[in-house]
Amino acid sequence: MEEMIVKKRGFAFYLSIYKKILIQDLKSKMSYRADFIISTFGMIMTNLSGFVTFMILFHNFPSINGWDYHHMLFLYGFSLIALTPVQCFFDNNWNLRFMVRSGDFIKYCFRPINVFFYFISEVFDVKGIGQFVFGIATFVYAWAHIGIPVTVLTIAQAVVFLITASLFMIALMNFSAATCFWIINSGYVMVIMFRFKDFAKYPASIFNSIFRFIFTFIIPIAFIAYYPSLVFVTPDDVPLISWLSPFIGVVFFWLSYKFWMYGVRKYDFTGS
């Protein structure tokens, strides 16, 4: 018998695999052109509707809790960008419960690559790109109007904080998707978490201490936009938690990955 050599796969290897799977996925999506167009239109509509709601709010109220129009817009743009990766790259989590229930999930366990990576890479959601463009436009507009200096440092900070902020929502969705390994049809957990993200675009300071605690330490949606934004909006008075948010994001994501993988191992044991 031939001996299998299990080698630790590197980043470049996974990147090349991802590219191949991505191209296949896009090809199959393109064959349903009407669906692609309607879905993209739908995504633009939801973003537009959120924006219109925002504008109507500020048409009536000049500021919220000391945050004026442009600062709120900054927060809004920040949250839109930070919520793009979960939409684009991690959308397959929504299918996890069906796969697990029907038993189709087993196919992911038979490949000599990371199960989480293989499962997640299977779907790339193009619709998220519209949201990204929308977010960038809002973000840049608000950035210019607040008068945040454009230096190498601030831009580098923006990139780092946006990427790490996106990890929070990804991790939340990983956690809630993985509940389906224990609870049958746990889709509602994901739906609930997905609804909470609507509050990411508001300053967490509007909540009372109980909810601020929940949104910081239990369901950390305050990290999606509020805490990292403080670094740019109030540069003279940045709380420690804002500086720590990138590290917390990485740890939180790592924990969600471990939880997800733990679910996979448990699923193997039930053996369906």
């Binding site: 349903y32 009407a34 669906d35 879905s39 239109f41 739908g42 995504m43 939801t46 509707s49 709601t53």
Partner: peptide, 18 residues
């Protein structure tokens, strides 16, 4: 006419809710 259920539903829901 089309199989785009998600798209149709999200467009309807967004318009109605707003």
């Amino acid at each position: 006419y089309t199989e785009s259920t998600w798209g149709i539903n999200i467009v309807k829901e967004t318009i109605v809710l707003l």
